[in-house]
Design a protein around this nucleic acid. Structure first.
Length: 326
DNA sequence: AATTAGGACCCCG
DNA sequence: CGGGGTCCTAATT
């Protein structure tokens, strides 16, 4: 009876982001889009996040969420196209729109727009790195990673981009060692995805560098009450399943598609996508074989401990925190 | 076919 | 020892 979760937004977590302008035309696409389109080489090796067309490997939900700037950019001479998916009508239709040579003013407008985009992109990247850090319980700077952290990050990246398991090829490597590897080294370990992983790592390093440079740049954003909240301590404090679930629940922006409150006051929540939640838990615990069967077994252990129970009216995939202190 | 409930056993910090 | 992970059986939805 229920419609499965994916509908509300209309985009999938891996819709491509399109940005184009007269001089640069960049399209990013996710690997499982079928054709494997990669960002221009020049973008991959960049030490900084400064680019006109932006490759955003792990900003999954990035700006698919009807963002204002997309509209702005559409009005500007430089056109931004954000095809919702594969709708054939969208692309080729309008010959009248082909712009002449850009005037100077148009160039300025364009630059400003690009600046805006960059700023927002950087913000999003920072946010996503932050989220990943908290979920994985790893430091933002790859240089600080242990072998375990490296594996977590790899699992995470694989998960986010639906890569096959390449993490096995990077075992026994610390973050520092990883950072010293060249792109060629990466490709040696995975001929198909090495460069991609290299690019992702590069973004993390850039982000860490940026954070180091301007450490006060915390987004004020009100919707993310995540900064102080939660997540206790960095060191490898083992996290409990119920804590992890609570973390996900407290980040509806990122995870409401797989787990959400039915009644926050009473602590009642529903797992919308059991497989996804299990995967996240597996990544967090470095247990690639985790699945909902096992996760739910662990939840059931909480019954007799009085941490989680089934609500009065039992429904599938619905649980309740016994002491909802939120 | 998925989910639920719990028993059993094992591993690890 | 506690908290899970893994595997399994049986019942329920």
């Amino acid at each position: 009876m229920g419609s499965p979760g994916c509908e509300h937004t209309g985009f999938t977590s891996h819709s491509p982001l399109y940005i184009s302008h007269p001089h640069t035309e960049t399209r990013t696409a996710w690997l499982d889009d079928g054709e494997d389109i990669k960002p221009p080489r020049s973008l991959l090796g960049l030490p900084e996040l400064s680019l006109p067309g932006v490759y955003l490997p792990y900003c999954d939900r990035l700006y698919m969420e009807e963002n204002p700037w997309i509209l702005k950019m559409t009005e500007a001479p430089a056109s931004v196209t954000a095809p919702p998916s594969r709708s054939p009508e969208m692309n080729s239709a309008k010959p009248s729109e082909v712009p002449g040579p850009p005037s100077e003013m148009e160039g300025q407008v364009e630059e400003r727009c690009l600046e805006q985009v960059q700023t927002m992109v950087v913000g999003e990247v920072l946010k996503d790195v932050d989220t990943a850090c908290k979920l994985l319980n790893i430091a933002p700077d790859p240089l600080d990673w242990s072998c375990v952290h490296v594996q977590k990050w790899l699992l995470w990246t694989e998960h986010l981009h639906r890569l096959p398991q390449v993490s096995i090829m990077f075992q026994e490597l610390t973050g520092r060692e990883l950072c010293y590897m060249t792109e060629a080294d990466f490709r040696l370990r995975s001929s198909q995805f090495g460069d991609m992983l290299y690019a992702h790592l590069d973004i993390w390093r850039s982000t860490a560098a940026m954070k180091a440079r301007c450490p006060k740049e915390d987004d004020k954003s009100a919707d993310d009450d995540s900064w102080s909240e939660v997540i206790s301590n960095y060191p490898n404090q083992p996290i409990h399943l119920w804590q992890f679930l609570r973390e996900l629940l407290l980040k509806p922006h990122n995870y409401s598609r797989c787990i959400r409150w039915l009644n926050k006051e009473k602590g009642i929540f529903k797992i919308e996508d059991s497989a996804h939640v299990a995967r996240l838990w597996g990544i967090r615990k470095n247990r690639p074989a985790m699945n909902y069967d096992k996760l739910s077994r662990s939840i059931r252990q909480y019954y007799k401990k009085g941490i989680i129970r089934k609500p009065a009216v039992s429904r599938r995939l619905v649980y309740q925190f016994v002491n909802p202190v939120f």
